[in-house]
């Protein structure tokens, strides 16, 4: 009855890791959300296996809650994805890479290459107003 617990946990772990790899590598927004659902499947297998091992229905009840949250997540993510698609006419997640801090390095699509941080398009570029004040001049201005 309970002898298959370890094997089921291994299957759940493999499904979870496959979902994680898919979430990290795929660039299509829809496939990223599907990979997240794959991770939820791995968790659900774990929960029901432990529920059978403990002999109560708590694992199944938790899995029902996981189903609920997965349904919410799918609805919200599809609404967001459609909104994002309307703006850029593409599902590529890297078109939205400039939402982060502009001075952070971004990982490029190619292996092991780092792109220089690009200035966001359409933003005004301010010319530097002068040299950075050194500590000596700052101290001098403090005296004045």
């Amino acid at each position: 009855m309970t002898a298959q617990l370890e094997s089921q946990l291994v299957v759940g772990a493999i499904l979870f890791v496959l979902g994680a790899i898919g979430f990290l590598t795929r660039r299509n927004l829809i496939l990223m959300m599907l990979s997240a659902e794959l991770m939820l499947h791995g968790v659900a297998v774990n929960l029901t296996a432990f529920g059978r091992y403990h002999g109560n229905a708590s694992g199944q009840v938790f899995t029902i809650f996981v189903l609920t949250i997965a349904a919410c997540e799918a609805g919200l993510s599809l609404a967001l994805i459609l909104g994002l698609y309307q703006r850029r006419k593409s599902l590529d997640v890297h078109l939205w890479g400039n939402l982060g801090e502009p001075n952070l390095p971004q990982m490029s699509v190619d292996d092991g290459m780092r792109m220089e941080p690009q200035h966001p398009q359409g933003m005004p570029v301010l010319t530097p107003a002068g040299a950075m004040p050194t500590s000596a001049s700052a101290a001098a201005s403090n005296k004045i």
């Binding site: 590598t25 890297h94 699509v109």
Partner: peptide, 9 residues
């Protein structure tokens, strides 16, 4: 963007 994975290694 589907044909090329992001950072597979």
């Amino acid at each position: 963007y589907d044909r090329k994975a992001f950072q597979p290694t």
